[in-house]
Write a protein that binds this DNA or RNA. Structure first.
Length: 378
RNA sequence: GCGCCGUUGGUGAAGUGGUUAACACGCUGGUUUGUGGCACCAGUAUGCAAGAGUUCGAUCCUCUUACGACGCC
């Protein structure tokens, strides 16, 4: 069960402040959702997640289907009980994995579904829209995602059009077999950076009446920021005000701000945890890299003024030591900080919307935040 | 003391009488957007123990010295 309530819409932009009621409490939006692919936000405990202000987290149908299997999780009492997380969980459908895992592998997309090889044992597997929903029903997540096709950014207009139509047919098939009354089901808008395809995809998906809507296909290989913003702008006008809007796979602080301004409510992204494991941290002055020699004896926290566990207890010098020696604690501490950074960003955005100062917030943020490739990527 | 072998970057090392001295690690930067769990990309010895010689040309050949390993008395 998911119920979205729009509380305040910004006057100057499409930004909105709202609340979503779930099986595990009510949460404010905009919100960032950490990714926990294999029923774990890599290296973090439940207490650490909650301490970093995480609400909904993600888990992945594809990975949990292969290991330990949805039946195992069902017999262990469902995903929440299994992983001891008593807050909402959203499961991704596996659609993205077909795109991302099969990049260099055999895959066979047909109307029925997708045949591809398991990354664990090479076994040929068939994932269909029905199968994906069936697995998600058993996992007992709070939000299930429709099984969509997620084509690469380089795909042609013709391909994208056919892909949008197929994703619509798949969404309907998934909706028909969905039978977990506690679980919400979201539809996904595709269509690349084409206005007519996004419109078609969004309007037809909304006709099917899902519990929420997401914008997909924006975190693909080679996707430019310009195209990402276009994809959002072309989709949002067709989404209803009374349903939550989820931008899949985004991520970078600036993109979250831009997307909130365009009317998006919730986000997920692997970035905070992945870059943490690779030694990098978000700060309000931009990303910093703990491999850099200049932090060798820097006793200041990762980010001055941050209220996270890492910043309250450890110095840059110590974390750099952990990162360069590949000690596990380094990635853990930076994951905590990076998740808190993004949850704090969305908290500040909520306040800005409530005060009618979103554009002012963005301007101030950009003044401080130096993203080296911001210009290149545009 | 004699004999024999060796001395290449921060480290382990490959290598050749002739344009940019392989590779790995380390180091220094960078990348990462619905996570195939610790990945990827780039840079990093104007120099091959020191000196002298042979040669059009030497890290590679010769000699001397220094240092080190091994063997023998």
């Amino acid at each position: 069960m998911i119920k979205y309530e729009l509380i305040k819409k910004d006057n100057e932009t499409n930004a909105r402040y709202g609340k979503i009621e779930t099986n595990y409490g009510t949460y404010e939006t905009p919100m960032f959702m950490p990714v926990g692919t294999r029923a774990t936000v890599k290296s973090l405990t439940k207490e650490e997640l909650i301490d970093a202000h995480s609400g909904i987290i993600l888990a992945n149908t594809y990975h949990l289907w292969l290991r330990p299997g949805e039946d195992v999780i069902a017999r262990c009492g469902g995903l929440h009980k299994f992983m001891n997380y008593d807050r909402p969980i959203l499961t991704d459908s596996g659609g993205f994995q077909v795109f991302s895992l099969a990049k260099n592998k055999e895959k066979d997309i047909s109307e029925e579904g997708v045949i591809f090889k398991s990354h664990i044992d090479g076994k040929k597997l068939l994932l269909t829209p029905e199968k994906s929903i069936e697995i998600q029903n058993k996992l007992d997540s709070d939000i299930a995602m429709s099984f969509d096709e997620c084509p690469p950014a380089s795909a042609s207009y013709e391909y994208l059009k056919n892909s949008v139509l197929r994703t619509l047919r798949w969404a309907l098939r998934g909706k028909k077999v969905h039978n977990n009354p506690r679980q919400a089901l979201f539809g996904i808008v595709q269509g690349g950076a084409y206005e007519d395809l996004r419109k078609l995809s969004a309007a037809k998906t909304v006709e099917m009446d899902f519990d929420g809507y997401s914008i997909g296909g924006v975190a693909n290989d080679g996707e430019s920021k310009e195209d990402m913003y276009k994809a959002i702008d072309y989709s949002i006008p067709y989404l209803p005000d009374d349903k939550v809007r989820y931008l899949m796979g985004i991520g970078e602080p600036v993109d979250i701000i831009e997307a909130v301004i365009r009317g998006v409510d919730i986000f997920d992204c692997v970035l905070p945890t992945r870059i943490a494991r690779h030694g990098q941290a978000f700060t309000r002055y931009g990303k910093i890299n703990f491999h850099n020699a200049k932090y060798k004896e820097d006793l200041s926290p990762v980010e001055e003024g941050c209220d996270c566990y890492t910043c309250k207890n450890y110095s840059k010098a110590y974390i750099r030591h952990l990162i360069t020696t590949e000690e596990m604690l380094g990635g853990r501490l930076l994951s905590i900080h990076n998740i808190r950074f993004l949850t704090r960003l969305t908290e500040e955005l909520r306040d800005a919307i409530k005060e009618g100062k979103v554009l002012e917030y963005k301007e101030n943020f950009l003044k401080n935040y130096k993203e080296k490739n911001l210009i290149d990527k545009k």
